[in-house]
């Protein structure tokens, strides 16, 4: 059984947010849902101002508070470390979202077809651009059952009234592919691999680079390691936050 982890090299990230777009395309997430999010930070005052970036996927914690609090076991952790959501069991209590200190969970506040960037049910503009076919182009892989437990994983179809979050693109990982953000970063900020394999790229990176994990003091034991940088201090200011609005 592999032990999956991700490394994020902060010295490389230039804040282009291509990973956020890749994630949206891959997982069809509704408007204002960012399973991957890139903070743009500003620190200190002019002329010493420093701008830096911090991508934030789900941390796939080993001691995941979200898994602990789920009243029905819809949020679960696989043996390989992926933290996933059984969207057919989830009752939409949002306790996982409240318990997670990283803010990576997104609830489907309305029917996802209506929550896309265009209204997928009756927007003439959509039809005019798509030759009269109606999106969403749903990735059929995303709704399959995976792993030895054969469970659903919060794939890309999305249902009203349940929670969704980053899956490390389990449907790609199962095929031996990298998660979409990893594969699409133009400057190779992310690496994804098996911690148990000393030759895997993540193991090598962790051996040779200083690293930290986000909010380690919370005891969540994240599986996402940040290389070459420091955790955001309380003084950082977020600049250019996404204008997702409150459209849910």
């Amino acid at each position: 059984m592999p032990r999956y982890a991700m490394t994020i090299d902060l010295s490389r990230c230039m804040g282009c947010r291509a990973c956020m777009v890749a994630c949206k395309v891959e997982n069809n997430t509704p408007e204002a849902h960012f399973w991957m999010y890139v903070f743009r930070f500003e620190e200190e005052e002019y002329p010493k101002t420093r701008v830096w970036f911090l991508p934030r996927p789900c941390q796939h914690c080993d001691n995941a508070p979200c898994v602990k609090v789920c009243p029905v076991g819809a949020r679960y952790k696989r043996d390989d470390g992926l933290v996933l959501t059984d969207f057919q069991r989830c009752i939409g209590c949002r306790y996982c979202e409240v318990a997670c200190p990283y803010g990576v969970n997104y609830f489907h506040w309305k029917h996802p077809d209506k929550a896309q960037y265009l209204d997928y049910t009756d927007d003439p503009e959509v039809k005019s651009r798509t030759n009269n076919t109606m999106p969403p182009y749903r990735n059929p892989d995303a709704d399959l059952r995976y792993g030895p437990e054969e469970r659903l994983t919060a794939g890309a179809h999305h249902y009203r009234g349940v929670i969704g979050k980053c899956t490390f693109c389990v449907h790609r990982v199962e095929k031996g592919l990298e998660p979409a953000c990893v594969a699409n970063c133009p400057v190779r900020v992310f690496e994804f691999g098996d911690l148990d394999d000393p030759n895997s790229i993540v193991s090598q990176k962790l051996r040779t680079n200083p690293h930290f994990r986000l909010l380690e003091e919370e005891g969540t034991k994240p599986r996402v390691y940040y290389l070459m940088g420091n955790p955001p201090s309380p003084e950082v200011r977020q600049v250019m936050p996404v204008k997702g609005g409150k459209r849910g």
């Binding site: 602990k68 609090v69 789920c70 009243p71 029905v72 076991g73 819809a74 069991r89 989830c90 009752i91 939409g92 209590c93 949002r94 306790y95 609830f107 489907h108 009203r160 009234g161 349940v162 929670i163």
Partner: peptide, 24 residues
């Protein structure tokens, strides 16, 4: 009123009840 999936909630809260969750 609060649950996103109220009907499923009635069934699953008993069917899959987890004492580890404070919601139990």
């Amino acid at each position: 009123a609060d649950l996103g999936q109220p009907l499923r909630g009635i069934a699953n809260l008993f069917r899959y009840a987890r004492p580890q969750s404070p919601f139990f």
